[in-house]
Nucleic acid binder design. Structure first.
Lengths: 224, 224
DNA sequence: CACCGAAAATGACAGCTGTCACTTTATTGG
DNA sequence: CCAATAAAGTGACAGCTGTCATTTTCGGTG
């Protein structure tokens, strides 16, 4: 598992035609590791081993363990942001529909790459430069954007007062949890990350629940 | 910070009157560490240092690093369960009210000891004996209990169909997140863990949101 | 008072980690 | 064709980790 290329590389500079080191794969493996074991718990030597690269390739290429972390997180977040934006630009409909679509798409994307959520969980417990980076460059801006949508909806009377921060935690760390905490999710029998239709159904259901709430008025009509 | 007793202990068996090693404090520090850095990332030597105990006290007392983990988690979960039960036994009111009270209390207790939620986040990503332990002994049974309440409410027509697992993730990992992911929560300006009234207000608000939903019907009445 | 067990600390060890310095090979420019 | 540079691997090092083995001290009992 994880060995991206089986062979060990020869000692010198690789021949021209040969495949160079796949930094994309390296960053993906690194992100996975950081998500699984946290920053302290991750061994960059192990990451190197998994992509069949010399034990300090990342040090020469990225500078240090922390720089590798930044590179991996930046890449993943950029991809997520691009994907989200691309999926939502051509949607000029109702504002509530736009909100619903954003949330659903976010959950679907979380299923596609749960490592980022895991890294967030690992870093969000205490302050530090890594959390600063994530918040300042990605999470804060995103929260600002959907915050304005929320305020617009509130002014239009379509929404109760909803704290954007609370919504963020509920969606990213709550609704997204079954897709990032796969071990626990399996025990609960939740939809597998690898079953896109099931994930999509789940995403719509949670968002519906968040927007619509659980409780029904105490029965003017009997249950069918 | 962390040094529970300042002095280093003398070499032999401690004199009769002297305070024995405070295993409770040790387990608390250990849980905090496991929550902050994950199992792999936690150093039992560091835990020992923080409670001013010899570098392998835990090995002699608990057997191994993993046994220390089990002891710490068991203790914390038992306390949580007892506290929850004690707070909710004398509440025979309406079923919806009981549900609301359970959820609110759970969030308040999470604020009091966020380490357990962090440990859950750290372990829930992949299967293994530690996750098994948590699920089999605590989370599964708890989910069963509130599952029956949910079904009863559904049959009474008071609730839409709500998957207990989804609710668990939304409450424990979503609503609880601002109190366990304190670093990120601070950036969002969420209520500090150490301000119980604010936490209580927050708890009621989120639960209200979960039960009542966000969206209002498109304005038969204008907003006040 | 001498002895045995209990409760703790200390020593030792192999293995792993992040980083630095170096070596090896291949490409490229003159 | 040869020097310079680029792109990788190897070696070495101090520091830390989990665990096992040993040592020290104290309390209780004959």
């Amino acid at each position: 598992m994880g060995g991206v290329s089986g062979e060990r590389r020869p000692r010198g500079r690789p021949p021209a035609g040969s495949r160079p080191v796949d930094d994309g794969a390296l960053l993906a493996v690194a992100l996975e590791a950081f998500g699984d074991d946290g920053f302290e718990g991750t061994s960059v030597r192990d990451v190197c081993r998994r992509v069949a690269v010399s034990h300090n390739y990342v040090h020469q290429r990225f500078g240090s363990k922390e720089d590798l972390w930044f590179a991996a997180v930046d890449r993943a977040f950029s991809e997520l942001a691009a994907d989200l934006a691309a999926a939502l630009d051509p949607d000029p409909g109702d504002d509530v529909e736009r909100l619903r679509a954003v949330l659903v798409r976010f959950i679907e994307l979380s299923a596609a790459s749960p490592a980022l959520l895991r890294v967030m969980n690992a870093e969000a417990t205490r302050p530090g430069p890594r959390l600063d980076h994530m918040y300042d460059r990605f999470i804060g801006p995103a929260a600002t954007v959907i915050g304005t949508v929320l305020r617009r909806l509130e002014r239009a009377g379509r929404l109760g007062t909803v704290d954007p921060a609370t919504l963020h935690f509920l969606v990213a760390h709550g609704a997204g949890a079954p897709l990032s905490l796969t071990g626990l999710a399996a025990k609960f029998g939740m939809p597998a990350r690898s079953d896109p239709p099931a994930v999509s159904r789940y995403a719509h259901d949670v968002v519906e629940l968040l927007l619509g709430g659980m409780v029904r008025a105490p029965s003017r009509e009997e249950p069918s």
